[in-house]
Lab assay of single mutants.
Amino acid sequence: NKFNKELQWATWEILNLPNLNEEQVKAFIDSLKDDPSQSANLLAEAKKLNDAQA
């Protein structure tokens, strides 16, 4: 289903952001699991944090 694909993509993207630490990655992944419908928003937040920590 649509959410599953978005969830998988967002998870992969977050796991490959170079500037997030392990705790941050885990928090984002946990949030994705809690509410897959928010995957696009969570991914945007993760990318923002990644850029801020570059």
Rank of each mutant, 00 (worst) to 15 (best):
W12A: 14
A54Q: 08
W9G: 03
N50F: 01
K5H: 09
Q53A: 09
A40Y: 13
D35P: 01
N19L: 07
S31K: 12
N1V: 04
I29T: 04
E22Y: 12
P36T: 04
L42G: 01
W9E: 15
K48D: 06
K26A: 13
N21D: 09
K26S: 07
W12L: 12
E22I: 12
Q24S: 03
L20Q: 00
D51F: 11
S39G: 07
S37F: 07
N21S: 14
A10V: 14
L32F: 03
N50M: 01
W12D: 15
A44N: 10
L49G: 01
D34Q: 14
Q24P: 00
S31P: 01
Q24I: 03
F3M: 15
L32K: 00
A44F: 08
E23L: 13
K26R: 12
E45Q: 14
L49D: 02
I14S: 01
D34H: 13
D35R: 07
L32V: 04
N21T: 11
T11N: 04
K48A: 11
K47Q: 08
N21F: 08
L17E: 01
N19F: 14
P18V: 10
Q38S: 14
E6W: 12
V25I: 12
V25P: 00
L49P: 00
F28Q: 00
K48V: 09
P36E: 03
N4E: 15
S39K: 06
L43H: 03
N16L: 07
N19K: 03
S31F: 12
D30E: 10
I29V: 10
L15F: 05
A44H: 11
N41F: 12
N16M: 13
P36D: 02
L7E: 07
K26Q: 11
A40D: 06
W12T: 14
S37H: 07
E6Q: 05
A52W: 10
K26I: 12
A54S: 12
K47F: 05
N16V: 05
T11G: 03
K5F: 03
N16F: 04
F28D: 00
F3G: 15
K26E: 07
Q24E: 03
P18H: 09
N19G: 06
N16K: 07
E22W: 13
L15H: 09
N19S: 07
E45K: 13
P36S: 04
L49M: 08
W9Q: 13
N21L: 11
D30I: 08
K5S: 12
A10L: 10
Q53W: 05
L49Q: 06
Q38W: 03
K26W: 10
A40R: 15
Q38F: 05
S31D: 07
D35S: 06
N41L: 11
A46Q: 00
K2L: 07
E6R: 03
S31G: 10
T11V: 10
Q8W: 13
I29D: 00
N41W: 14
E13W: 08
Q8P: 02
N19Q: 06
E13G: 04
I29F: 04
A40W: 09
L49R: 03
K33M: 15
K48W: 09
K26T: 10
E22L: 09
N4W: 15
V25M: 15
T11M: 13
E45Y: 08
P18N: 08
L32T: 01
A46G: 01
L7A: 08
N4S: 06
L32Q: 01
N50A: 04
L7W: 07
Q8T: 06
S37V: 06
F3I: 15
E22G: 07
E45A: 12
S31A: 14
P18S: 09
N50W: 01
Q8E: 15
N41R: 11
T11E: 05
A54L: 07
D51G: 08
K5M: 02
E45G: 04
W9R: 12
E13V: 12
P18D: 05
A10M: 08
D35N: 13
P18A: 11
L7P: 02
A44V: 11
K33W: 15
N16H: 13
I14K: 01
A54T: 10
L43G: 01
D51A: 12
K48N: 08
K5R: 04
P36A: 05
N1P: 15
N50Y: 01
N19M: 05
D51I: 07
K33Q: 13
T11K: 05
K2M: 14
A46N: 00
Q24V: 05
K48H: 08
K2I: 15
K48L: 14
N1K: 05
N4P: 14
D34P: 02
A27T: 11
A10K: 03
D51E: 14
D51T: 08
W9V: 11
W9Y: 14
L15V: 06
E22A: 14
D35W: 08
D34A: 13
W9P: 02
A52I: 12
E13A: 08
D30H: 08
S37Y: 05
I14D: 02
S39I: 15
S37G: 11
N41A: 13
I14F: 03
L42W: 05
A52H: 09
W12Y: 10
F28A: 03
N41P: 08
P36W: 06
D35T: 09
N21M: 09
V25D: 00
L42T: 12
I14E: 02
N1S: 04
S39M: 15
F3K: 15
L43Y: 07
Q38Y: 05
S31M: 14
E45P: 00
K33H: 13
Q53V: 06
T11L: 14
Q8A: 13
A46Y: 03
N50G: 02
S39V: 15
